[in-house]
Simulated scan of single mutants.
Amino acid sequence: MSDTAAQLDALAAELADPDCDFDRIEALESELLTARDTDLIPRLQEHLAGAVQAGNGYGRHVLSHILAATAGSRALPELLRAFARDLGDDQDSLTATVTVLARQDRAHARSIILRWATGPDPDPDPDLRRTALWLLGYVPEPDDLDLLADAARDPDDRVRSVTVGTIGSHTKTSARAVDLLKALLADPSPRVRVSALSTLGFARRPGTLPAIHRLAEDDSTDVRAWVAIALSRFPAAEPATLAVLDVLAHDPDTYVREKAVAAREKLAA
């Protein structure tokens, strides 16, 4: 066994130990990052999969960092499989890693994403499929809108919700993308309606305001609150927008009222 392989095994053992030595973990991680021993890639993949299986978010963070530094974009399939599992941590570092690698090697990233998300045989793992659809928003191509329109009709509202954000990556270049988002404001799932409101708020297209205004009467308190949040992102306050916010400022729900008042104050300023 090579020295680096022994170091990796020692690191994995420390990461799996509830009473681990963080200084030793940091030292081993630093040595492996410096070595970037490509012969370790299969072993890194194995240890990373084991950490995810064990629900070890810290282990996932450390091992993903080393794998990405060692293998580059070649590590994307394993990193995405690790990323797709909700282990209760924020995953900010891993999010940055996979998005940077995808942008650095768009063709490779898209070959993985399209196969898992919308190919003739989409990956049966729903978490992985949603992750692929999410990452597609970071490497968009105009032809993606057909497959995104199909994903936006998926029976799983979690798929539809993540698809909303990816459609949003096309709003600066495609009127069709904006129309798809406006249609999703009528989705039966509050989760999807909230995602559509958030995305349209960032897009800031004045022509979408009437559709956003109509959701001020939505049955969901989350949706009504997000109407206010979305409107606060527009650069100017139209009279109709201010009237909607005034109505929401008297909503029965405290959270909705707070967001409406905050949006009114932001637009007034």
Rank of each mutant, 00 (worst) to 15 (best):
S169P: 08
V162W: 04
V159M: 07
L133S: 08
E141S: 02
E238C: 10
R205Y: 14
P140R: 01
G168Y: 11
H170K: 00
E238N: 05
I212F: 05
R191V: 13
T208G: 08
P210T: 11
S161G: 14
G165Y: 06
D146L: 15
P235Y: 00
P235Q: 05
R205P: 07
L209S: 08
A152N: 07
R176T: 15
A177C: 15
A183W: 11
V139I: 15
T199K: 03
L181M: 11
L245A: 12
A203M: 00
F234V: 13
D218H: 05
A216V: 13
T221A: 08
T166I: 12
D187K: 05
G207C: 10
E238P: 04
D246P: 01
L242H: 09
R205S: 09
S220R: 06
D246K: 01
P140Y: 11
F234W: 02
L197I: 10
L148V: 15
G168V: 10
V159R: 05
A186W: 02
L147S: 12
G201P: 04
D156H: 00
A240E: 15
A230S: 12
L200R: 02
W226Y: 12
D222T: 06
L245V: 14
L184K: 07
V164K: 00
S198D: 11
G165K: 02
V194L: 01
P140N: 10
L133R: 02
L248E: 03
R204T: 15
A175D: 15
G207P: 11
L248P: 12
T171N: 00
S169Y: 10
D179G: 03
D246W: 04
P190Y: 07
L135K: 05
A149Q: 04
P190S: 08
L215Q: 02
P155F: 07
P188Y: 02
V194I: 13
H170E: 08
D219V: 15
I167F: 05
E217F: 07
T221G: 05
T208N: 00
R176P: 09
R193Q: 07
